[in-house]
Amino acid sequence: MARSPISQFSPARWLERRLPVIVVSPLFALSLFFVYGFIAWTAYISFTPSGVMPVYDFQGLAQYERLWATPRWYVAIKNLFIFSSLFIAISMAIGILLAILLDQRVRAEGLIRTVYLYPMALSFIVTGTVWKWMLNPGLGLQRLMREAGFENFTFDWLVNSHYAIYTLVIAAVWQSSGYAMALFLAGLRSVDDEILKAAAVDGSSPWKTYTSIVLPILRPVFLSTVIILAHLAIKSFDLVVALTGGGPGYATDMPATFMYAFAFQRSELGVAAASATMMLMTIIAIIVPYLYSELRKTA
């Protein structure tokens, strides 16, 4: 269409050439308005004295000062940091081990892969509910171990405010490591067989081949997996709500649940908006450069 030479003007041809712009523009405008427009609104609210209801008088950085003077916000940030670093590291470690395992030409690979991926297809709400049972000291793992004879076995992380954050890591890792596996497996499959054969001929051990040849080739896969898992971690809201409800107390609060609590339960819209703006800036700093470079490369 675009490349065919146009010798004379015809309405049909003109329409054909303009069609892409005509169909794409409204969508583009719509999605940008509803996300970035509203984000801009939220960002503006963070500079106003809004409480229960939004007000529009500009007052500077007062809400940010209040935000950074709130102990609960530090808990939320610390939790996000602990949660995302552990979640990303463990999911990736398990993901790559599972991918290498499945790459050994196991039987019924398709079936196994589907089972590994199943948790990812479930809602975080279901994941949270299921793990709530598994981790409940009176019902799940702790009880099982005690009845199996280990009377002193204790696993009460879910109700312990120091360790509750790690239960979120467990549930999230369960949900996402199969997904990391799928990403790595696709990467492993794209490694040229010839390279592996050459390494074997040169007497390289399997371990050495993986660490010094295969993993370096997979570097782009590592990067995209980190980015995708990181954005899942920063957005995590439903899992926290379903598994711990942010508790005990606010021990497992994350920025997203913090924002929610301040906007809807504590009527501190300005502080909530300030926290949302902080989150957004973090995400933009991570995601935009990545997306940009990815699209330059692939699309």
């Binding site: 583009f28 999605s31 509203f38 984000i39 939220t42 809201f237 949302a276 957004l280 699209l295």
Partner: peptide, 27 residues
Amino acid sequence: VPGKRTKDVLMWMLSTKMMPAVGVLVP
């Protein structure tokens, strides 16, 4: 019919999906 801006348009649209939903919840 990719134009010069197609990739940028896609990038911008996809980036909205990455934004945390709490940022637009209140409005």
